[in-house]
């Protein structure tokens, strides 16, 4: 077993709130510079740039970066749920279903930010037509079920965040929601809950929730596993076969 540094929640320029500098090649370069062996690409309600980041990683000369296909779905309760999938097709399938209820972009939505679709070189090849900053019609349970149906891992995103987290929206952590892990993002929020958020009985993934290049790897976890792949990540999260998640 080896320990691989992983930041499993990184946005691209597809997310309206992310910086335009978050192009596929720039993300891969920043991830390697931060010493990461694995990243997860999780844009809001879309997986349209996942394949481009994976292709950009494959073009890195002599260096290895595993790019896990992901999505960050906003549920009807306005809870952010990250999904990590075996491949880009699965992430896109889940994204398509999550997006069904979202309206098309009109002129007023540009103030929320651009939604850039990019190629592996970072050239803009289009724009996502659905409004990505809004909540989908899926409730939390339906969202977790959707992720599972596409073979994914469901992660309660940034549960230490005072907005858009399971804790902020639902007050207490629903133990039966079916999450595979909880994520901590780099922020000081410490709600007076009477219990430790790290003590929910689920693996804790430390991630950057990066929206800017300088965010990437600012918080990360160590994955003790045989190789940096989705299959091994699943084992680490399930604490199976000697694999596990180690936080800094």
């Amino acid at each position: 077993m080896k320990v691989f540094a992983a930041d499993l929640h990184v946005h691209t320029a597809l997310s309206p709130c992310a910086s335009e500098e978050m192009t596929p090649p720039a993300i891969c370069r920043a991830a390697l510079d931060a010493g990461l062996a694995m990243i997860g690409v999780c844009d809001h309600n879309s997986a349209g740039n996942v394949a481009a980041v994976q292709a950009a990683a494959a073009m890195l000369p002599g260096e290895e970066l595993a790019v896990i296909a992901g999505i960050e779905i906003t549920t009807v309760e306005e809870v952010h749920v990250a999904g990590l999938f075996p491949d880009a097709a699965a992430a896109c399938g889940a994204a398509r279903e999550a997006q069904e209820s979202l309206p098309e972009v009109d002129g007023r939505d540009s103030r929320f930010g651009e939604q850039r679709l990019m190629d592996p070189e970072g050239a803009i090849i289009g724009a996502e037509r659905k409004v990505l900053h809004m909540a989908c019609a899926l409730d939390l349970n339906a969202c977790v079920a959707l992720i599972k149906r596409y073979g994914g891992l469901a992660i309660a995103a940034h549960i230490n965040r005072p907005s858009y987290s399971v804790i902020s929206q639902l007050g207490v952590f629903p133990a039966d929601a079916g999450f595979d892990a909880v994520e901590f993002a780099p922020m000081p929020y410490a709600p007076a809950l009477g219990f430790d958020l790290k003590d929910l009985g689920l693996p804790v993934l430390e991630s950057s929730d990066g929206h800017y290049l300088s965010d990437i790897g600012s918080r990360f976890c160590g994955l003790e596993m045989a190789e940096p792949s989705f299959e091994e990540l699943v084992l680490a999260i399930r604490r199976s076969g000697g694999r596990r998640v180690r936080n800094a």
Binding site: I167, Q169, V172, P174
Partner: peptide, 27 residues
Amino acid sequence: LLSDVLAGASAGAVLVTIQVHMNVIAV
């Protein structure tokens, strides 16, 4: 926001909400 209800609502209050998640009952 149920975290806000937990932090702010007084015992005996009537809550008006559009939140229908199961956690409403726990809170």
